[in-house]
């Protein structure tokens, strides 16, 4: 997997601490993410991934440290951050009792895209996803894989600089997962930065770089290839186990 590191740092985190009382959820995180990169954010449950993502999305303030997302400061410029990011969680977050086009229209609408543009681009999107026959069908009657693709397309409909994917492939079959990663690559090729958390360690191999969190700290951060070499492992699963057992 070849890619040239872009010089532009789209996410910059320096000495980020987040404490809840005496519990430290994020313990001195320092990392950066480059524009157009697929950045894997790995860690066991409770390692502090969700807390970090919330801070990066402007939903939560750090206890201390410097955090810049898309060039904006998370302490003071969350409004600007929100305009420049997309977000998709494992729940897919589509409204079950709304149709495909209504969901697109709603989410595009809250990002302030004009009605005319929404209409044009909805048609293109529906065609691209092969959803023409179900565009006026309620989401609840669609298969999981379709929902997932639609949810991703909706999350990047407003063309954000960064898209955060929080375990986007949970509970989806391997073929659909594969197709989903093709969509992620396409977005990254269009210079969108993809920040993804996952449970599936084979998916970590698809990322340009991977960080592994253990107990609130980042224990490793490199390309999958370098990590495997460094930890003398066959695959990312072994790397992960070696780190977790340390």
């Amino acid at each position: 997997m070849l890619y040239a590191l872009s010089p532009v740092q789209i996410i910059e985190v320096k000495n980020l601490f987040k404490k809840f009382g005496s519990f430290t959820a994020n313990d001195d995180l320092t990392f950066d993410v480059k524009q157009g990169e697929i950045f894997g954010f790995l860690g066991a449950n409770g390692a502090g991934k969700t807390t970090a993502i919330k801070i990066l999305c402007g939903l939560s303030k750090p206890t201390s440290g410097e955090v810049k997302v898309a060039g904006f400061d998370v302490y003071t410029q969350t409004e600007n951050i929100k305009k420049n990011i997309g977000y998709m969680s494992q729940k897919f977050s589509l409204y079950e009792d709304l149709t495909v086009t209504e969901n697109i229209r709603f989410y595009a609408g809250i990002y302030g895209i004009s009605r005319k543009e929404i209409k044009e681009r909805t048609n293109i999107l529906v065609e691209k996803l092969h959803l023409e026959s179900v565009k006026d069908t309620l989401i609840k009657s669609l298969p999981l894989g379709w929902k997932q693709k639609l949810a991703f397309s909706v999350a990047i409909f407003h063309e954000p600089k960064i898209v955060f994917l929080d375990e986007p492939t949970s509970g989806v079959d391997p073929i659909t997962r594969r197709q989903f990663w093709e969509m992620i690559y396409e977005a990254a090729n269009n210079d969108m930065t993809v920040f993804v958390t996952t449970h599936y360690l084979d998916e970590a191999e698809y990322c340009n770089r991977v960080s592994i969190m253990v107990d609130g700290r980042i224990d490793a951060l490199d390309s999958p290839k370098n990590l495997k070499e460094k930890y003398n492992a066959e695959n990312m699963n072994e790397v992960f186990l070696k780190l977790a057992r340390k």
């Binding site: 929100k82 305009k83 998709m88 969680s89 897919f92 977050s93 589509l94 809250i110 990002y111 955060f164």
Partner: peptide, 13 residues
């Protein structure tokens, strides 16, 4: 429950 609240909170609304 549906997780749509997260998405709304992340949006500029």
């Amino acid at each position: 429950e549906l997780g749509t609240m997260e998405v709304l909170l992340v949006s500029p609304l």
